[in-house]
Structures are given as C-alpha cells and as structure tokens.
Amino acid sequence: MVVVRMWRRLFGGQPEALDPARTDLVVVASSFDDAEAGSAALDRATELDRGAEAVLRHHLRLPADRIEQACEIAGYDGYERAAPVAETTGEDLVPIILQRVQLLDPLTCSQERSRMAGLAQRHDGVADGWDALQPPHPAP
C-alpha cells in the first residue's frame, strides 16, 4: 500500500479525493461483529481496492439529545454525519452514520472501531459496526 502511494505521488500526481456524496459508491467491506478483527473483515473484502481511499462509515445509535455533542467530537478527527437524523424524544436511540474518507488497513479499522465504540459509550449509545464504500471496479 505504501508503494502504491509513493508510485502515485512520484508518477501520477495526487489522485482525486474520493467524494463521499458520490451516488455510485458500493459497500466493499464491513463488520458488525464486535469480536471480528479488522484484519478478518478486510480479508473477506474481495472488492476492496486497498490502494485507494474509501469512505469509512460507522453506524451508531445515540440518544437524540447527545447526537450534536458526539458529532462535534467526531468532527475533530475529520468525521461528518452522513445521514439525516430522525429526531426522537425520550430515551430512544437514534441511528446515525459518521463517516470520513481514508485508506483502510487492519490497524486503522480496529483503531477507528474502538474510537467510535468509546464515543458511543460515553454518550450513552451503541456502536453497531462499520462499513466502507468505494466506486465499483470495472469488469475485466
């Protein structure tokens, strides 16, 4: 992966940044099992281009009154809220998605999953899992 980045930098310039709002993105990797290692999830990901950026999305459920604060904290690390939130009242947990664009590797997947689990827990919520999106690869 490092070689690919160096090659692009030396000979291909910087690749265009991946736009998370693209409509052609597809799920290329995911893990919604707390016991599954990031490396196992990525090993299962046959469509993942490991040398290209992906939109890493974390699926959380948070109390409605804690969402803004959690999103602000996640924003310090470059995360943005992806989906509109259907606000509720009381103790119901509202599903949200926090996302950012990055290269994926087993270490960063595990670190980010742990970071989001901690964020959700500190805000009385739950981190359900993560997935990653990339543009589909052209058929050979």
Score class of each variant (00 low, 15 high):
55 V>N: 04
30 S>R: 07
23 T>R: 13
96 I>V: 15
72 E>S: 14
109 C>K: 02
56 L>D: 03
124 D>M: 08
22 R>Y: 08
69 Q>I: 10
87 E>R: 06
16 E>D: 15
11 F>Q: 08
112 E>K: 03
23 T>W: 01
73 I>H: 12
55 V>T: 07
34 D>T: 05
81 R>P: 04
103 L>M: 10
116 M>Y: 07
127 A>H: 15
36 E>F: 01
133 L>K: 00
124 D>A: 15
78 G>R: 02
58 H>L: 01
78 G>I: 01
121 Q>L: 11
125 G>L: 05
29 A>W: 00
121 Q>V: 07
42 L>K: 04
116 M>D: 04
71 C>T: 13
134 Q>D: 11
2 V>R: 12
113 R>E: 10
86 A>R: 13
107 L>E: 13
99 Q>G: 11
43 D>K: 09
26 V>T: 13
55 V>P: 03
10 L>Q: 05
114 S>R: 08
66 R>G: 10
110 S>L: 07
23 T>Q: 13
16 E>Y: 00
29 A>K: 02
138 P>T: 10
109 C>E: 06
83 A>W: 05
107 L>C: 07
65 D>S: 13
53 E>P: 00
109 C>F: 00
9 R>A: 15
41 A>G: 06
74 A>I: 02
6 M>V: 11
36 E>V: 10
40 A>V: 11
3 V>D: 15
38 G>F: 01
75 G>W: 00
108 T>G: 05
28 V>G: 05
76 Y>R: 13
89 T>M: 10
117 A>Y: 01
115 R>C: 08
36 E>M: 12
96 I>N: 06
101 V>T: 15
86 A>Y: 02
65 D>I: 07
36 E>N: 01
49 D>P: 01
77 D>K: 07
120 A>P: 12
110 S>H: 07
39 S>Q: 09
82 A>I: 00
62 L>A: 02
111 Q>G: 05
112 E>R: 05
27 V>M: 08
40 A>M: 04
99 Q>D: 11
28 V>F: 09
117 A>I: 00
67 I>T: 10
85 V>S: 15
69 Q>M: 11
109 C>V: 15
131 D>K: 00
43 D>E: 15
32 F>R: 06
94 V>Q: 12
75 G>V: 00
17 A>W: 00
115 R>S: 14
140 P>T: 08
51 G>A: 04
94 V>M: 06
